[in-house]
Every structure is written in structure tokens, then in C-alpha cells.
Amino acid sequence: MASVTLTQSRPMRRNRKDWRGWGFVGPFMIVFLAVLVAPVVYAIVLTLFRQQLVGGSGFVGLENYALLFQDPKFWESLFRVTLFLVVQVPIMLILSLLAALAIDSARLHGTGFFRIAIFLPYAVPGVVAALIWGFIYGNQFGLTGSINDLLGADILQPFSSDWILASIGNIVTWEFMGYNMLIFYAALKVIPADLYEAAEIDGAGQFRIISGIKLPALRGSIVIATIFSIIGSFQLFNEPNLLKALAPNVISSYFTPNMYAYNLSFAGQQFNYSATVAIVMGIITAVIAYIVQLRGSRQEVR
């Protein structure tokens, strides 16, 4: 939602306060306040208290935040999702971009088929995706086992600690590559035809067209897709949590910040500390998303 133009309707009645808009926005905002803002506020309240299994609850001020900043488990999980983000997001977005450009190029046989086939995984629930890949990764009767048999050695070890992040990255890439492709493709589709005609008159080749026309036109979509992917990476939960049953020692209870928060709450009853993790992660995510948006927009202005 980087570059929504808030100024666009400025020409309309600026003189007096126009409350009619709230008639439309109101219902959304009421539900939004109730189911999203209220829990956030409640979570902030929770971070200021500490409840113990023995001895009840007490106000502790910012102590939970102080604890969190010295908590190696939190930093480790944050580092892990950052690493994940830095590697997985570019790979996924580049693959999506390639697919979108290829489909848009009209040089494919059966474009429609490719478009829908690559998009299909998005329709698979994350839980089901993790389940399917969990089976496939299995060394005994999954595909991995068959490939290893073929190669005659245990080359693929999706559940070893060296591989696990890549294994999860693969699932996430699989799930969202088509989705991002579609966002890019949609942006490519609306490039005005006269731009291409002008390029052709200038004698520009395919690659010149891509770098000169298509990529600049995609910049906005790329910023959006990046922001959504960053949020998604920082909130990584379903895939590692479901794979934990298959790789218990490799995927720790604090593998990602979100898993850490979940286990603090539901295994450890540390609701207050868990809420602190959530709030801090929310702030970090918002700041990074904001910076990406800012940088993305600035480049556009240039």
C-alpha cells in the first residue's frame, strides 16, 4: 500500500468538514478497532505486567522490554528470520518476476496454462502445504528418499540443521511465487501499448524493452510485494511449527519470533513476555516496511 494517493480527491469540497466519508469507512473501522486495534492495545497493557504461576500478577513497568533486549533466544530467532528474509524473499521475487515477464512476453506456447498452473499453489492452505512437503521431504517414502536412492547417497537432508531454513524457504517460495507473479503480471498488462510502439520505432530489443519500460513500470508492485514478503517472513509460523514434529531438535521452540511468542504463551504461560515479543516484532516490522516503502518511493522520484 505504498503509494496510495491521499491527495487525489483534494479537489472535492475542501471548505467545510465533510463527514459523509465516515458513513462508508465507519463499519470497517469499528470492526477494525474491535478485532485488531483493541488486541494490540490489550497486548501493550499486558507487556507492563507480569503474571506468575505462583504469586499472581503485578505491575512491572518496562521490565519485560529490558528482559527481552537481553534475551539471546529472541535475538537468535530474529537473526534467523532476517537471514531467511534476505535470502528467500529476493529468490522468490526474482523467480516471480521472471515468470511474469515470460508470460507477458507472449512468446510462450499456452500462456494461459502456465499462468494458472504456477498460480495454483497459492490456493493450497499453508497447513496443507506444510503437510504435503513434510511427506515429500521424508527420507523413507517421500520423494527425497527416492532421489537419494537414485543418487546412491544421502545428498538431500531437508531436516538437517544446515538445510532446514532452505526447506522452509522452499515451501514458502512454492506457496507464494505464483501469487507474486500474478501481481507483477497484472502490472505488466496495463502498460500502455503506445510505449511499446514507440520503443519498436526506436528499434529497441526485448531486453531493452524489459529494462527500459517493464521494470520501471513494475517498481511499485515490487515495493508492495517486498513489503508483504517482509511482513510474511517476520511472521513465519505455520510452516516451521508443523515441520517441528518431523525435525524436533532442529526447529527449536524459539525458531522464529512468532514461534517463540506462541510457545511462551501456550507452553510457558508467560503471556506478558509473549506480548512483549509480539509488540517489539510489530514495531520492528513496521519500521522496516516503512523504510522499504520510503526507499522504493524515493527511487521512483529520481
Partner: peptide
């Protein structure tokens, strides 16, 4: 519509999206 509080709506919506839903 250009109504009072329009910018706040945008800011609040974007901000809340960033807080991990799982942890909430």
C-alpha cells in the same frame, strides 16, 4: 471523500498489519 481523520485511518491500518497476528 475527503473526511476528517482520513490520514489517521491509513496510518492505523498500515501499522496494525505489521503486528504479528499469531502473537496477538
Amino acid at each position: 471523500f475527503n473526511f476528517p481523520g482520513r490520514r489517521a485511518v491509513f496510518a492505523v491500518v498500515l501499522g496494525a498489519v505489521a503486528v504479528p497476528g499469531t502473537a496477538l
